[in-house]
């Protein structure tokens, strides 16, 4: 019974992780840039939901609609003005660049919101739902459904829309895409915008479950990375499966080894996978 409950908890968590990782994976896969800012974007989205609810009474699930365009614009502008100049630079430089940007953003959040952990609590609370012996809080359940929905939406955009197909084309073969008339620079900016959007939109969802603080950014970033390795780069289904897998592994891991060893556990998992399959569980080789 306990096993089922833990599995359910893990899947709920995993749905959120999938949402976190899909944007990160997209940017990494298409631009070959590791966006260290991703974790801070998530936290910023959380604050947006927190204040929208606290000050304006906007329900956190609705604030996703506000977050989405704002974060898309932020990501688009950032890529267009800064990161695009460094797109062809060695890994170390692009990493250091986004690291520097992250220091600025997280410090700005620290100065504005302080390091205190805030908790977004809905009033009135939504209660719980029971499926047989499995009990799940309703807010978490909705958060998971929305997270998976967002991820699914991203998948649809990539597979069905014109711009989505251009993004996929650039990911597969940049030169060929450029020859076929795709504006690579614009595709990069849109991709980065979409990645940022996914981070910013998952912020309100995570704020329903976890405390919000600038200090939590790196942990989200780490999870996004592990998921990419699990699921392979640049594919939404990969991020989905990787996210669910990590959620389940973490749930059982904290049962067996204690929650304080979550990072160690995912690191060991990460190393094992990288050593056995450097291209990820589902991924194909190609993006270093």
């Amino acid at each position: 019974m306990l096993t089922l409950q833990i599995l359910a908890n893990g899947l709920v968590l995993g749905g959120l992780y999938a949402c976190i990782a899909s944007g990160f994976s997209l940017v990494w896969g298409v631009l070959n840039v590791i966006n260290i800012l991703h974790g801070s974007f998530i936290v910023l989205g959380g604050y947006l939901a927190f204040y929208a609810y606290g000050l304006l009474g906007i329900h956190p699930f609705l604030s996703i609609l506000i977050a989405a365009p704002l974060f898309f614009a932020l990501g688009y502008a950032m890529q267009h003005t800064l990161i695009n100049r460094m797109i062809a630079a060695p890994v170390l430089l692009t990493l250091t660049l986004t690291f520097g940007l992250d220091l600025m953003l997280s410090n700005a959040m620290l100065a504005t919101f302080t390091a205190d952990f805030r908790k977004l609590t809905l009033d009135p609370p939504l209660g719980t739902l029971a499926f047989g012996t499995i009990v799940l809080p309703v807010d978490r359940l909705i958060a998971m459904v929305l997270a998976l929905g967002l991820t699914g939406l991203l998948y649809l955009v990539l597979s069905r829309s014109r711009i989505g197909r251009a993004i996929v084309a650039v990911r597969m073969d940049r030169e060929a895409a450029a020859l076929m008339g795709v504006n690579v620079k614009r595709v990069y900016a849109i991709t980065f915008g979409l990645g940022t959007l996914m981070a910013g939109a998952s912020g309100p969802l995570l704020a329903m479950i976890f405390p919000i603080s600038p200090l939590t950014g790196p942990a989200y970033l780490g999870k996004a990375f592990v998921i990419c390795v699990l699921g392979g780069l640049g594919s939404v289904p990969g991020a989905m499966i990787g996210g669910l897998a990590l959620g389940v592994v973490e749930s059982f891991g904290s049962l067996w080894f204690g929650p304080e060893h979550a990072t160690t556990l995912s690191f060991v998992l990460l190393i094992l996978i990288l050593l056995v399959r450097p291209e990820g569980l589902l991924g194909r080789k190609g993006y270093a």
Partner: peptide
């Protein structure tokens, strides 16, 4: 740390 970040950028 923010200014440090700016320096890095």
């Amino acid at each position: 740390t923010g200014v440090l970040g700016l320096l890095i950028v």
